[in-house]
């Protein structure tokens, strides 16, 4: 059974995907992840998730999913002019 592994590299940061591994149950998956992916002190916390349980967006839906966000520049602060000389804006 395939598991995806996520590691928090240090406190204050999110878990990040680092790779995958095989294990037949969650207990071993977590320990395998510790042995394989944190040998060089890369982590302070580990998540393992059965790969089959991940629901992912499909590349076919990419346009419908992500293009509509492209024409809304007013969501970004750089859209607005800040009058010269003013701060704290």
């Amino acid at each position: 059974m395939l598991w995806e592994v996520f590691v928090r590299s240090r406190r204050g940061l999110s878990h990040t995907h680092v790779g995958s591994l095989h294990a037949d149950d969650a207990h071993l998956a977590l320990r395998n992840a510790r042995d394989v992916y944190t040998r060089r002190q890369e982590g302070t916390s580990i998540w393992v998730v059965p790969a089959a349980q991940i629901v992912a967006s499909s590349p076919d839906e990419k346009d419908a999913f992500f293009d509509p966000a492209g024409d809304k520049p007013y969501r970004h602060p750089t859209f607005y002019d800040v009058p010269e000389g003013l701060t704290h804006l």
Binding site: L21, H22, A23, L28, R31, N32, D35, V36, R39
Partner: peptide, 10 residues
């Protein structure tokens, strides 16, 4: 398994 190779050597 490969995972166990890593674990045993640890």
């Amino acid at each position: 398994t490969l995972e166990e190779d890593v674990a045993l050597l640890n």
